[in-house]
Simulated scan of single mutants.
Amino acid sequence: MGMISNIGMYSLLMVRVFKKPQRRRIFLKSLMREINDLGLNSVGLVVFTSFFVGAVVAIQMYNNFQTSSFPIPDYYVGYATKVVLILEFCPTIISIVLAGKVGSFIASSIGTMRVTEQIDALEIMGVNTPSYLILPKVVASLFFNIILIMISVIMGIWGGYFAGDLSGSWASADYIQGLQMESPSFYIYYCFIKTIVFSFMIATVPSFYGYYVKGGSLEVGRSSTQAVVWTTVLIIITNLVLTQLLLN
């Protein structure tokens, strides 16, 4: 019953979220603030994570190819690294990382407003609080997470390039040749479809937990933890579903 009740409350909250914002100027101001808080402040973490994981992926691909029972050219390291980053690492793993960083921030910020009765005060003034508080976060997440995933793909590829350049395991020219090999164009669409779905979850699930928190500061902390856990679980499950639907 608790899960069904939460789904119903989440659906009703989303209906209120996507009502037309009351004032465009206030909405745009909130949107710019959320882009800074949720997007720009995450660029460094995404760059750092993607660069080193891209290097690790390239090294693992090279070692697997070397131990293969039949010879695989070195330029396949670049191709395999590119495909792995586009299909799985960048849209899924980076989204999970953002669920921890961004999700906890969203849940705690809205939860603090709830327990300090700021949301109640806004509602007394006739403000549609779900639209006012959550809609800018959803739009900012959908807009900027796509940019973050693009940055992640680029930095992951650069990480693989420098891993080969520094270790001398494979030639840079071979790695670049592998990057230039043609891959199905649908892989790009698949990457961004997953990014959009995961971005929506990252913005709305923590908002739900923060909006309906009850109690004090201790409950806000617990709500933030729950938000991160459930957002991560939903991303993993949805990743399986989308992979089955889109790639089969």
Rank of each mutant, 00 (worst) to 15 (best):
V43K: 14
L245G: 07
R24Q: 11
S30L: 13
M1T: 07
Y211N: 06
I196A: 09
Q22W: 10
M3N: 15
I7Q: 00
G39W: 09
I157A: 06
F186A: 08
M113F: 10
S185M: 09
I134R: 01
A121D: 10
T67G: 12
I196S: 04
Q177G: 01
A203V: 07
V46Y: 04
L87S: 10
L179H: 07
I176V: 10
M155Q: 06
C90T: 13
L166W: 10
S131R: 14
Q180M: 14
T231D: 05
I7N: 04
K82C: 08
L242Y: 05
A203I: 05
Y62M: 04
G168F: 02
S167H: 03
S5D: 12
I157Q: 01
Q22D: 15
I4R: 11
F186N: 12
I96D: 00
Q177A: 14
T232Q: 08
Y175H: 09
P21M: 01
R222A: 15
N41P: 08
L247N: 09
I193S: 05
G216W: 13
G111K: 03
V138L: 07
V56Y: 11
N41G: 12
E34M: 14
I106V: 09
K137I: 03
L40P: 01
E88R: 09
M150P: 03
Y175K: 00
F18G: 02
L246H: 09
F70H: 12
S199R: 08
F200N: 05
S169D: 08
S199C: 02
R16M: 05
P206F: 09
K137R: 14
S217N: 06
M32V: 11
N145Q: 13
T204P: 02
T225I: 14
S42P: 02
L179G: 03
V205P: 00
F48Y: 06
L28N: 10
N64C: 07
A80I: 08
L148Q: 02
T238A: 14
G159F: 07
V57C: 12
S199D: 04
L246N: 11
L12E: 14
N41W: 10
Y189A: 11
I196R: 05
E34L: 04
D74H: 14
E219W: 03
D174F: 07
S141D: 00
G159A: 05
R33W: 12
Y79A: 13
S11W: 14
K214S: 12
V241G: 08
V241D: 06
G221V: 00
L133A: 05
V43M: 13
V213I: 13
L135N: 03
F27Y: 03
G78T: 01
Q66F: 09
K19P: 15
A121Y: 10
S42D: 01
Y212C: 07
L179Y: 04
R24T: 15
G216H: 11
I193M: 07
N41T: 15
I236G: 05
Q66R: 14
L245F: 08
R16A: 12
L240C: 13
S69G: 15
Q118N: 08
V102A: 01
F144E: 01
C191N: 04
